[in-house]
């Protein structure tokens, strides 16, 4: 087990900067998730850590030791790939033990380590099968098994759940997280799925255009997004963005008291909004016409026309208003997020 450090890492592909000034300290045993949209540089950063891509600049440290120029095969880092990358011509047993065979360990030791790893993942009955004879979930477990058998200093996961169906993905999330906690291995996990990021990570790193946008604990990032990108990327449905000039019910006085006049943009989480009765008087009010209702059972999402834009409100599943009617949504000052002209959060 070891800490991982990215120190000012850059990566250019020709004229395109895939990763820019990426600096991150990952503590020993920590589970860090790199999250962001496609092309944000998260997988490139992971591949640089794995040694599969040389950085254009900067340094990578593993356990305090500079491994920037160390070949991938000598880094003692294990990786689970998006398509699992199991060797098609080998059985599960051969796939899992391949790395140990290459280290020329004694056969008894290889067999014991393979059996131990297989038992942890519940693969004992599948050891003589070829990858093509396994389901997607089983292949994913074999890929994880292949990673843990080497007893690496760090685990890297590159969107390992993206090929699984929703139900299996939820189970695999829990399984991977439990396994990581049990083994205590430093883990860097790449995903574009914010649910994976929020539910698995000790800390999440939100990336966009090759740069880190924010690093923090999932709930902190959710509650205090550092900029407009993070605010809209994290959270589902996305945060509503409203110009401070919009009519917020209590008029400019309300906006002023919320400190909104100095902001270029205001943000409101859909779950911060409540459907108001005729006599309710919240800090801020948004009046509009209800255009669509998504009744999801546990919750209901309202689409409300407000000053020419659509505002989403997430309400309890028991609320089912009628489409086409005028509605009033309200929220508290403290639920308001304020951003400046550059899209940065204003209140720190």
């Amino acid at each position: 087990m070891a800490s991982v450090s990215f120190r000012g890492v850059n990566k250019r592909f020709g004229t395109v900067a895939a990763v820019r000034d990426f600096s991150l300290e990952i503590a020993d045993g920590e589970f860090v998730v790199l999250v962001g949209p496609s092309g944000c540089g998260k997988t490139t950063s992971l591949r640089i850590l794995a040694g599969l891509e040389p950085p254009s600049g900067g340094h990578i440290l593993l356990g305090g030791e500079d491994i920037t120029g160390v070949p991938s095969m000598d880094r003692n880092i294990a990786m689970v790939f998006q398509n699992y990358a199991l060797y098609p011509h080998m059985t599960v047993r051969e796939n899992v033990s391949f790395a140990l065979q290459l280290r020329k360990l004694p056969k008894a030791e290889i067999d014991a380590a393979t059996a131990r790893a297989a038992a942890m993942l519940g693969l004992e009955d599948l050891m003589e099968r070829k990858p093509r004879q396994l389901s997607g979930g089983q292949r994913q477990r074999v890929a994880v098994c292949r990673a843990i058998v080497r007893d690496p200093e760090a685990f890297l996961f590159d969107e390992p759940l993206s090929n699984l169906d929703a139900k299996l993905r939820a189970a695999a999330r829990t399984e991977i997280r439990s396994l990581q906690q049990e083994l205590g291995v430093t883990t860097v996990y790449v995903t574009h799925d914010q649910v994976e990021a929020m539910t698995m990570a000790d800390r999440i790193v939100v990336m966009h255009d090759g740069e880190i946008q924010q690093v923090g604990r999932p709930l902190d990032v959710y509650a205090r997004p550092a900029n407009l990108f993070v605010a809209t990327f994290i959270g589902n449905p996305s945060m509503n963005l409203v110009a401070p000039t919009a009519d917020l019910g209590n008029g400019n006085a309300g906006a002023a008291s919320a400190g909104a006049q100095s902001a270029a943009m205001l943000g409101l989480r859909p779950e911060s909004l409540a459907l108001l009765g005729d006599t309710d008087a919240p800090d801020l009010t948004l009046s509009g016409t209800l255009r669509q209702v998504e009744a999801l059972g546990a919750e209901t999402v309202l689409h409300v026309d407000f000053c020419g834009q659509t505002i989403l409100a997430r309400l309890p599943g028991t609320v089912t208003p009628v489409v086409g009617r005028p509605v009033r949504l309200g929220c508290r000052y403290e639920d308001l997020h304020r951003f400046d002209d550059a899209g940065r959060r204003l209140d720190g």
Binding site: R47, A50, G51, L52, P71, S72, M73, I77, A78, M79, F81, Q82, N83, A85, L86, Y87, P88, H89, F98, A99, L102, R103, R146, R150
Partner: peptide
């Protein structure tokens, strides 16, 4: 040939020769 298999072999500790004979050619 899938790049991920080259990458997986490299991370497992296989050099270019080992990757060729033990991973690529059998496939």
């Amino acid at each position: 040939f899938p790049r991920e298999l080259f990458d997986a072999a490299e991370m497992d500790g296989a050099g270019p020769w080992t990757a060729l004979w033990r991973v690529v050619l059998p496939n």
